[in-house]
Amino acid sequence: MTTLKKGGGRAAATLFLAPLLALMLSACQTLPPPQRADSPPRQTLDVPFIAQDAYQCGPAALGMMLQWNGLPGDKEELVHEVWLPERQGALGIELKAAGRARGLLPYPVETPDALFSEIQAGHPVLVLQNLALKRWPVWHFAVVIGYRDNGERIILHSGTDEATSSHWNRFVRTWARADYWGFVLLPPGELPARVEPEPLLRALAPMQIDALPHWRAAVARFPDNGRLRFGLANALWAAQRQQEALDAYQRTVALAPDLAPAWNNLAYALRRAGDDRGAREAVCRASELAPDSDNIKDSVADITDGNGC
């Protein structure tokens, strides 16, 4: 990218430039792709391509992720949904929210290792890149659809280029300048290759539509996690499956006996089932665990008919 002028005053220039050059060289140290990329040494996913119009890489990238999920990903409609004219761009959180609104799970992919894991599991990854400088950013959304040469080259649907390839080294710099921001967008029942319970909880918690199959998958993957079980119980309750919800709340408090919100909700599920005494005991347990919570104070008043614990 940078060329040094040859010619007069060369010695002086060398003297002056030497530290600068050393700095540049250290900055240009190559970052190898993670070892994970060795097996298999290449992989390309079949992801529909949508070319972007001026500045509209966000809607185009989202459209590709939706179409990969078998949903309509009409770019023009998505422009209305996620593109902000005054910023001439889309916001990352809006892209995730748009996926969530369609019942898809957006899960963060924020390390090179996770990126390759997801590609190997067949999941395309929407990434944010900063194509310019940290202080003078040029943001760009693209979809990573594969890699070859043991990860030395990464394959992307980017801008107007279908399945274009980029040196890993160059790609990872642009991705690092965007704080390694990226995510997979998965259909109900499917989980990321790399998944942890807490990020999964945070990814699923705001989901309003078709959340139940996602929670079921989460609990199947982490059966001993009380907090995910709580999410499942709430999703069952929201789906009017009260008996199943009651069972799930009971499992939750067995797995996570210190989780005050679970005791609170168990109280309501028990009351609905006609067990007033059990409801009182549960809400009082919640109150012991979280004496300062206004919500639980109200619950105690509600469940005990104002008598308190």
Binding site: L204, N264, N295
Partner: peptide, 8 residues
């Protein structure tokens, strides 16, 4: 009075 997962 139920606590939502998002609320928690």
């Amino acid at each position: 009075a139920m606590v939502t997962t998002d609320g928690m």
